[in-house]
Write a protein that binds this DNA or RNA. Structure first.
Lengths: 219, 219
DNA sequence: AAAAATATTTAAGCTTGCTTAAATATTTAA
DNA sequence: TTAAATATTTAAGCAAGCTTAAATATTTTT
């Protein structure tokens, strides 16, 4: 299938999974940087190919076939991220940027080779789960957004859910990294800010960031 | 530039380099599996972009800009082949097949990372030279086709210039591999066949193969 | 519940990269 | 050197993926 189609189903999949947004053509269009008209067009086309359900003015819903395609692309993306991160001295933003392209030109055969080489990892360097060759995510995610964390508790960072360079630069600068420990020293609920202690530094995060940093409570 | 354009200039470059064929639209069309009309069309279009010189019924000639683009794609192709060959248990045909896709979605940045990781190799697993980041091939090729080798002499294999699965299967089966030693035991000039000794086996090759197996005389 | 704001859809049109069929030029062979 | 074979070009047309502008529906606000 074409790159445009792969990106379209992937965008729907991610929108459903991560965002509070409606999965309507307009939202997908925004993510992909195309016009609303183009998204509507594409949605109609993909409906005839049984990749999604389309009804005028309703939300887009991936079919099983569409979901499978999306997961297959996501798998390749996250495997590339894992490989590039391990092999080369590249930032989280850089591995994302490259994987965004490579994911569409990777055979299942090669994806399996990469996976085996890495020891069939379950998570990528962002902490995102890697679907297996059958397009299944077998791990269950118990992590919560830092915005929902509790004052006084200690957590480990499990996911950095973004593809924004500035965010990753900030993370790198402050030790916010997959696996690292943070203590939530204060929740400013009115202002929706969270104060944390990391690497002996106290930093204050606003909601833009606490919504995309996921953590697990330490036992 | 688009995949179609990259493949077009690459095909011209390779046709000029390796083949005795005229570099006219028809020949390029054959290589790319498109119609003659499509190739003529594309040639005209690329001429306006200063990638090649086009004159009706004449051969296509890459401009400096076009050559640079071709070499950049070739560089990425050969770097991928080198990386995949080193990392994974993949055949020469398989690494070629995958690299044919990956080459078009690889930033210069990533290509340089791959090159550095591999120690900036000068040759890929086929023995083909890898252009540097400036698009230059700095090595000089002293090798000759096995069809031009001399009876009684000993050679080392320097290039396997093909992308055909059957050819590579044959090579793998018979120890025809980059760096290996062959003795030319007989040249049957009338029938254009070459008898060689390799791994203590005598095998008889026809011109289809001796034209694409390149060797260097051992001193 | 109606008006205003917003989102979606339709329509028309563009570029890229292909196709086939017909016209034209070049090359090969007699 | 002319006829036959072959190759190239032109012309018309198609699908994919986009665009903008206008029409229509939905949602929000008052």
């Amino acid at each position: 299938m074409s790159i445009a189609v792969e990106n379209f189903v992937k965008a729907i999949y991610k929108n459903d999974k991560n965002d509070s947004n409606d999965t309507k053509p307009g939202n997908i269009a925004k993510k992909l940087g195309i016009s609303n008209a183009a998204a509507t067009d594409m949605a109609k086309k993909l409906a005839t190919k049984n990749l999604l359900h389309y009804e005028k003015y309703q939300e887009l819903k991936l079919t099983e076939k569409g979901t499978k395609m999306a997961l297959n692309v996501v798998r390749k993306h996250r495997l590339w991220e894992s490989l590039l991160f391990r092999m080369f001295d590249m930032s989280l933003h850089e591995i994302h940027r490259e994987s965004e392209l490579l994911e569409h030109q990777t055979s299942d055969f090669l994806a399996n080779k990469i996976s085996a080489y890495l020891g069939n990892p379950k998570f990528d360097p962002h902490g995102d789960p890697i679907p297996n060759a059958q397009g299944e995510i077998t791990t269950k995610d118990t992590s919560i957004a830092l915005s929902n964390s509790k004052e006084g508790k200690t957590y480990t960072i499990s996911r950095l859910m973004s593809d924004d360079k500035e965010f990753f630069d900030f993370c790198a600068l402050n030790g916010l990294k997959y696996g690292n420990t943070v203590v939530v020293t204060k929740q400013f609920s009115k202002n929706k800010m969270t104060q944390i202690l990391i690497n002996n530094n106290t930093i204050l995060l606003n909601q833009d960031f606490t919504n995309i940093i996921y953590v697990n409570e330490t036992n």
